[in-house]
């Protein structure tokens, strides 16, 4: 059993402490917006915020996440108000297949939280998610649009 605080709610989950947080979120908490891509913290599809920091949830165990504030893509909006990254993604039609975009959006939201006006170099360093469709140009443009708003 583990208690996880996800998107402001406490979940008491029947899950072993060494289970990757990704699978506890997807299968036990039932929040499937966070995606599985590699399981080895390479691709970033499973990125969530843990205490505000973008983390690859496949590489974090449930025991490590207990007691911390976890935010998933489902918790990024405030009620009916989408997060500015989500709004920009819609306005600029960023996603193609969209599978990597939950993780991409979470990584970008964390970057903008830390650096509201990131340079291209900041983006290059912070955004290391894989997108096989190749949405990188739209991702970069959307980040700059948000930063200049």
């Amino acid at each position: 059993m583990a208690n996880l605080t996800i998107n402001g709610k406490t979940f008491t989950l029947d899950v072993e402490p060494d289970t990757p947080l990704l699978w506890a979120i997807r299968e036990n908490a039932g929040l499937t917006g966070t995606k599985y891509g590699c399981g080895i913290a390479q691709c970033g599809a499973c990125t969530v915020h843990i205490d505000g920091v973008a983390m690859r949830s496949c590489g974090v165990s449930v025991s490590e996440a207990e007691g911390k504030k976890i935010t998933t893509i489902e918790g990024l909006a405030s009620g009916d108000s989408l997060h500015k990254v989500q709004e920009a993604w819609i306005a600029q039609d960023v996603p193609q297949c969209g599978y990597c975009q939950s993780g991409m959006i979470m990584a970008v939201a964390a970057l903008l939280n830390e650096k509201p006006k990131p340079t291209d170099a900041d983006i290059d360093e912070a955004i290391t998610n894989i997108c096989r469709c190749g949405t990188f140009a739209q991702v970069r443009e959307a980040i700059h649009t948000i930063a200049s708003a």
Binding site: G33, T34, D93, P95
Partner: peptide, 21 residues
């Protein structure tokens, strides 16, 4: 014109095969 399928891809609501319940 804008794609018709973008909104759900930004909120985690889009259902892929891996998400079917």
């Amino acid at each position: 014109v804008k794609r018709l399928d973008t909104a759900d891809k930004t909120t985690g609501a889009m259902i892929y095969g891996i998400d079917v319940k």
